[in-house]
């Protein structure tokens, strides 16, 4: 069963009009990546030996040579702060009560964009950052199973 179809909150029947929406599959790579995150609390990388290139989040083919990627490895939960921003307005242009930190945490040759839990004054580009995961019972196979990243020495 795929991660998507495990959604038990999906209604089995619907009365009235049905909103038009998109239902995505996780894909071959996504099923493996998000299952590892959910069940084992791991962030997986995939490596192309031909191009010497590491993809995080892991993908199942190398976009450079189109080889299938079979070398998957645990990337660990600690990456490096590549850049960050501080948000003062929300999606709809309304001012936020508290500014929000968003960062790009690099892993391998790729990385993950996520929320940061830190004091903006203590952030330095290049510092190690650790993923804070939700407890396993609350994880659903989503990028939000990572609650945020925070400085390793916090």
């Amino acid at each position: 069963m795929t991660l998507l179809e495990r959604d038990r909150e999906a209604p089995s029947a619907w009365k009235g009009s049905l909103p038009v929406t998109s239902r995505y599959t996780y894909g071959l790579a996504g099923e493996r990546f998000f299952r590892a995150l959910k069940d084992e609390g791991k962030i997986l990388a995939s490596y192309c030996p031909k191009c010497d290139h590491t993809y995080v989040p892991a993908v199942n083919f190398c976009e450079r040579c189109l080889s299938e990627l079979t070398e998957w490895q645990d990337a660990g939960l600690v990456g490096v702060l590549h850049t960050y921003t501080l948000l003062f307005v929300d999606f709809e242009g309304q001012p936020l009560d508290e500014p929000e930190l968003i960062g790009f945490i690099s892993f391998g040759d790729g990385g993950i964009i996520h929320k940061l839990d830190a004091n903006p004054d203590e952030l330095e580009i290049g510092m190690p950052m650790k993923a804070v995961l939700k407890p396993q019972k609350e994880r659903s196979g989503s990028i939000l199973d990572i609650r945020c990243f925070q400085p390793v020495n916090k």
């Binding site: 795929t2 599959t25 894909g27 071959l28 189109l66």
Partner: peptide
């Protein structure tokens, strides 16, 4: 309904076409 994402479907076909004539992306 394919499990593959659109990217993965594209890759499968592209890779097969290249392999069929023994070419690489180079």
């Amino acid at each position: 309904r394919a499990l593959e994402t659109p990217k993965e479907l594209s890759w499968e076909a592209a890779k097969m076409a290249l392999d069929s004539c023994e070419l690489t992306m180079d």
